[in-house]
Design a protein around this nucleic acid. Structure first.
Lengths: 208, 208, 208, 208
DNA sequence: GATGAATGAGTATTCATTCAT
DNA sequence: CATGAATGAATACTCATTCAT
């Protein structure tokens, strides 16, 4: 299974060092309480260097999100390609989301909390990678409808968001409680999967 | 059906005038871009007066949220009391949430977006009214399990959050798109209800 | 003779305290090297207080200039009203300018040097008080032409600026040399007066 | 008549390319708003290359001024050598200054406005070329006094500055109004000449 | 000589909060 | 209770200058 949060892409080493530092600092202090100088120090670069790679503080957050989402989508697509059953594909989507929660909790914290703190991100930015991620979910649902496995009155455009909302909110529960709660990530993943599949499936008794 | 967003409680008229002003300003500009002075002006009080009623800016947001959630819970409890069927009660929960989206979109915008912008709220505040709201949902689920209507392997503590996450995320879709999207609030409410009930129900074919 | 540099106008005491502090600091360090915090300290107010009275740093400089020019014009008008002879009026203009150089050298330094350092001032600001000051000079020249004392081919619009340019440049000489030069302010004033009057006079031999 | 603003002296081609670029950029944006990187780009050299030829940003401005003044003095001396009459020499000085205003307005803008923005230049730098330029004017005045053409109570040291101040201030008028004003450069030059000569001349009726 | 990526010192301005009236 | 003038801490960003290559 590929590691989700690792990117040594073509953008240069310092770029990624700054993103990694930002992820840590943002998760630690929140976006608005994180200082650019802190990120620079964590990344071992000068304050000004940040601005050679990013337009401003918002851009760091957005770039971070885009970069991580791109990786998430890559891994997701690769994993889905190895699975035949549609139900198992949906289970894999959910499992991957919660796997991230353990492997890279800082990232999930940023997605669930900090992301919404950037006004520019919420209201102006087009959020392309996020839409792509939702699209993967939506495509699975459409595929299921075409195969007659999922009820015809299910709207993929709505249910893909419902699925994300569920995962996001429950991730938030873990993030805020610092994982000190009664549910294990594995059980949560499984229970959510069964709930979601039953909710959309044509005939729940035939669920594999 | 009672009006959800109206409160002339015992806390005094200025208190509520400030909250109403804050709701408008926060929804307009976001929490971090709203100035206390703006709220004061909108409420027709002096800047300093705000601090006779609230500890600080965060406290305004939190109080706003608490106040509105209390009203929401009140209305919800009253409506639920008039309904016998458990499935219909759950449908009512969802319907009420989306009714708010039309009746008081500023409030929903604050819940879905701005609330998460207050660090104090997210990380330190205990969120009592929000827990109460979730509790109402959780109680319904427990009741359903006790009655054998809902599957025994459904965790109320998890599913109440899944439900809230779904509603919240889809509300966000409406808020961000300024209601310019292809789904009608009514249809969304109904589709979500059926999805959720099927997801948790013991035998979906017996759903009333 | 009225004191030139004193203003206790209707704008409030703090406003004028800040202007006086700015005049001192600007003259000492130059506009670009003066810090707003320095001015605040000199004026015995908090940094933020400055912004209750001025829009920004440029505005301080502009307001300072406007305020002082207004005073200068007031004094000039009053002195001119007591003089009958046109030649003596022109001599008074020049004498007043150089009197300022001794009474309030900081002010003259700001006019000759620092003022030109504010890009906004030089290129965008309309410079109303400065135009009024020049207007007083221009009116004297027109009056002289009408009376046949000044040559008909003298352009008041040009010569009023020539006069100001002369006075400004020679003031600069004093300011930069910290008054350590061979000319006395009185002699300079008188020599410039005679030069200027001869330059414009219809018949220099009839100069009173 | 020699072209004033062209110098391919012994300092190397890049040196002069940088000066030419600086003249353009400074005139366009003002000294303080011009970035060294902009000048480098305009000159088609790397940022660091600038510092192989100049100590710092101030030094660029000073060198630019010195270089242009040296050229101006050269041209002025050559033109004066071809003229016999003292009055005509003084007329030539003024005419040349305003000819520059048309031929190289960027240069005049830098002299009148931007030069004063460099603190180092104004307060510390000795301004050698500028003094030489003034010296040329002063020498003419002394010569006139010796010949009995100019009044004995004229101070050359003062009047050379008065002349420069007049020309500078009226140049400023043209520069700031982007030449959109009612005076033609030729007429201005002539009127100023006659005014100045009358102001200093022993017997204005004998002016050639 | 030439480059240009990296540096990091430096500062105007905002705005939540206070407190004398 | 109410006011609103005054406070002052806090910070993203720029850009002249350097120096390893």
């Amino acid at each position: 299974m590929a590691k989700v949060a690792a990117n040594n892409g073509e953008k240069g080493e310092k770029y990624h060092r700054i993103l990694a530092a930002a992820q840590k600092i943002f998760a630690q202090n929140g976006f608005h309480n994180s200082k650019v100088a802190q990120i620079a120090k964590e990344a071992n670069v000068a304050d000004g260097t940040i601005y050679l790679y990013f337009h401003n503080k918002d851009d760091i957050l957005i770039s971070l999100f885009e970069d991580r989402m791109r990786m998430l989508i890559d891994v997701l697509r690769k994993e889905l390609a190895t699975i035949d059953s549609l139900a198992d594909k949906i289970r894999a989507v959910i499992r991957l989301h919660f796997r991230l929660l353990r492997e890279d909790p800082d990232l999930i914290e940023i997605i669930t909390i900090e992301l919404r703190q950037s006004t520019m991100f919420m209201k102006e930015y087009q959020n392309q990678q996020f839409r792509s991620y939702l699209q993967v979910l939506g495509d699975l649902l459409k595929e299921g409808k075409d195969q007659g496995l999922i009820r015809q009155d299910v709207s993929p455009g709505l249910m893909k968001r419902a699925l994300f909302g569920m995962m996001d909110e429950i991730s938030l529960l873990f993030v805020l409680s610092h994982k000190q709660n009664k549910y294990s990530i594995e059980n949560v993943s499984e229970e959510l999967s069964e709930f979601f599949l039953r909710g959309i499936w044509h005939d729940a008794s035939e669920l594999p």
